[in-house]
């Protein structure tokens, strides 16, 4: 009999690798999601860049300081963070298939079982964000903070993606079905569009400006935009990181509590 079992971090690593291996086995299900946000970056820039880009110089529409790509790129990054929502689906797939039960019968940490899909969700977000930033850079994005600005945006995207991953895991575990986990990601749409998505907050109509003030997405977008357009504006960037980190903390706690309830022996 083998009397030892792997330490926690190794368990997490092994389970994460297993999920990544699964993803690699169904590329057609994953690739469209990875490219869709990059596609929208092109569409947003193509549709709105003419009005709010260089030709807006000297007009009230010059909020992008001449480069609309710097303004709209964070929208694509934030929208990519919804892919962290796939985490709940990965976990629920394991519950539905009985793989989860197999792991429960082994002396491995249930937290490793729950965190693995969240880590995979965050990796997906990072991958998409990197792709968007690479594309953005190729077509003319130019962060005021230089190359390090990209890393800062990536960091904020990572926390925001973890937040969505945690939320979807909690929703998936509570609903007990992959459809439930999928449906829960629709929260993303009001979160993205009740925010200063296409114009700064001051240009929004009253009701939307009020909604945006209460929407955490607003502060993440503004933090990323500060990095891209203004430079190292500490209060906006800090606020962005705090909101993204706070969102991740809250949803991960929610996920852990939900999972604890679901995995407790009945």
């Amino acid at each position: 009999m083998n009397n030892s079992n792997a330490p926690f971090l190794l368990q997490l690593g092994i389970l994460t690798k297993r999920l990544l291996l699964r993803l690699s086995r169904r590329p057609l299900a994953e690739l469209p999601n990875i490219f869709i946000s990059a596609f929208f970056l092109l569409v947003y820039d193509g549709a709105l860049g003419g009005v709010f880009g260089g030709s807006a110089a000297g007009t009230p529409f010059d909020f992008a300081k001449g480069n609309f790509l710097n303004f709209i790129l964070p929208v694509s990054i934030v929208s990519a963070s919804v892919s962290g929502g796939a985490s709940g689906i990965y976990l629920v797939e394991d519950i539905e298939s009985g793989v989860f039960k197999r792991y429960q019968g082994m002396p491995i940490s249930k937290w490793a079982i729950i965190l693995a899909p969240i880590v995979v969700g965050a990796v997906r977000v990072l991958l998409q964000a990197t792709l968007i930033m690479t594309l953005g850079n190729l077509i003319g994005a130019d962060p005021a903070t230089g190359i390090w600005g990209y890393f800062a945006v990536l960091g904020m995207a990572f926390f925001w993606g973890m937040g969505f991953a945690g939320y979807s895991v909690a929703a998936g575990v509570r609903s007990g079905s992959s459809q439930g986990a999928q449906a829960a990601t629709f929260l993303f749409f009001p979160a993205l569009f009740l925010a200063p998505t296409f114009t700064p907050r001051y240009a929004l109509k009253g009701w939307l400006e009020t909604a945006a003030a209460y929407n955490p997405t607003t502060y993440v977008l503004e933090g990323m935009r500060a990095i891209m357009i203004e430079g190292w504006v500490s209060d906006l960037i800090l606020k962005g990181f705090l909101v993204a980190g706070g969102f991740a903390f809250i949803t991960l706690t929610f996920a852990v509590l939900s999972a604890r309830r679901a995995t407790e022996k009945s």
Binding site: R18, L21, R22, R25, R26, D94, S97, G98, V99, F100, K101, R102, G105
Partner: peptide, 8 residues
């Protein structure tokens, strides 16, 4: 009802 990962 213990499952096996069919993709691996």
């Amino acid at each position: 009802d213990t499952g096996i990962d069919n993709l691996l």
